[in-house]
Design a protein around this nucleic acid. Structure first.
Lengths: 229, 229
DNA sequence: TGATGTTTATCGTCTATACAAAATATCTGC
DNA sequence: GCAGATATTTTGTATAGACGATAAACATCA
């Protein structure tokens, strides 16, 4: 495989990390680098574009390209799907629907999803287990105005998470991480003690400005979410 | 600005979201799309490459391009720098060094950083405040073998986080999120109650396989970390 | 049948060239 | 000296053409 642009990108990155081109300083322009690497400008352009996306350099027309003073490092992670998470650990996945109720949305949910007061929603709670041990408690709310078919859906075999993924796409999502003291009910389901600190991920998705669902995923005690970058 | 590749990318995305091209299905090849959009193949290629990076489609030579059955959505977030976080909220940032001690690394840290037993490390604890209120407790360990100059550094004005960012680059990093019950000492520093659930971010960075630092950032009660995607 | 070699469609990358857009630098008139 | 117009430099994007790499599909032979 041709790898010119990769080689150039890596060499430029090396020079930056090795401080041959100090932070804040200008680096040679595309035409000069073409000459040095003996290649077309498009090739240098692609190498530099990737470094810019990485956050290592900053490019501006006419002003040239400079090394960022503090690299804008960004981490990326795949949005977790609990069944895959569990199966990736080599454990058996199991899912239990704990409760299901159609109801008018409580005020806090209306505020969060920006839907009118008392909009009809479906409230589900479920437990995801790994090898029989509780792994995650899912507290899900589905906007029935956007997704009336959820009312008829059977969530006893396929969890709402996967049902939603298969049923509706989403165009916008927001995810938050935080911590929560377990209440006695949660403790009972997850098999921990009331008061234990639990890691919580919240997710809200919408499709073209129509809110779809809000979910709180409360993890077993000690759970960590890790990513490299 | 010319926006052909953007327009094409967005139109292809629209078709996928609108189910005109069903999940798992093949989409037309580059040459056909060139004909449809009346542009060069490189332009279609760039549009499709971006969609592939987004995780919406999957491309393989000879096999063509198909819509992913479950879109591999990935969120990206900037690696947090506490001072900027606080200033972005419009609050006044303040930093206090609580303790500082050079010592041999405890066993758990050696295991984590993969350094030899009893390697010399510098242990620092500090408190970051927003408008005078505790915001984050920082528990940091610096590998003195990799960074002997840390021993002389003065951390009373510039926090270790920013000192490190300015002093050494890193080539690899790992970040984890989790939850923790506050102990009485933490509760005292953060002004919460012992037992409160706190959100914790852990970070480990290394430079070319040499571990640099390990840090636990323990946030105030109720703290959430949010990102859109 | 099954293993192995061959063809071929499709994506991946590179080149050379061109023009556009943005932002700095320079000039002009006052 | 200053405001505004103009020139210039650098990056951003597009085009047409070319060849390479990969893996599926097909053909051949043991």
């Amino acid at each position: 495989m041709k790898t010119a642009f990769r080689d150039i990108r890596d060499e430029l990155r090396r020079r930056i990390i090795a401080n041959e081109w100090p932070p804040g300083g200008l680096i040679p322009n595309e035409v000069d680098l073409c000459a040095e690497f003996n290649c077309a400008r498009a090739t240098v352009n692609r190498a530099m574009r990737e470094l810019a996306e990485e956050g290592l350099i900053e490019r501006r027309r006419k002003a040239g390209t400079r090394v960022r003073d503090v690299p804008r490092k960004q981490a990326t992670f795949e949005v977790p799907v609990v069944r895959k998470e569990i199966e990736a650990r080599g454990s058996r996945y199991q899912f239990t629907l704990l409760s299901r109720e159609a109801m008018p949305a409580p005020a806090w949910l209306c505020a969060r999803l920006e839907i009118p007061d008392n909009s009809p929603v479906l409230h589900l709670t479920c437990l995801h287990c790994a090898d029989g041990h509780p792994y995650q408690f899912e507290d899900r709310w589905i906007n029935l105005k956007a997704l009336p078919q959820a009312k008829q859906a059977d969530f006893s075999n396929v969890g709402p998470n996967e049902w939603l993924l298969a049923t509706v796409p989403y165009t916008d999502a927001q995810i938050s991480f935080g911590a929560l003291n377990s209440d006695p009910d949660l403790a009972h389901h997850l098999g921990c003690k009331a008061g234990d600190a639990l890691f919580v991920a919240e997710r809200m998705t919408s499709f073209q400005d129509e809110p779809i669902t809000y979910v709180r995923m409360i993890h077993q005690r000690g759970h960590q979410m890790t990513m490299r970058y």
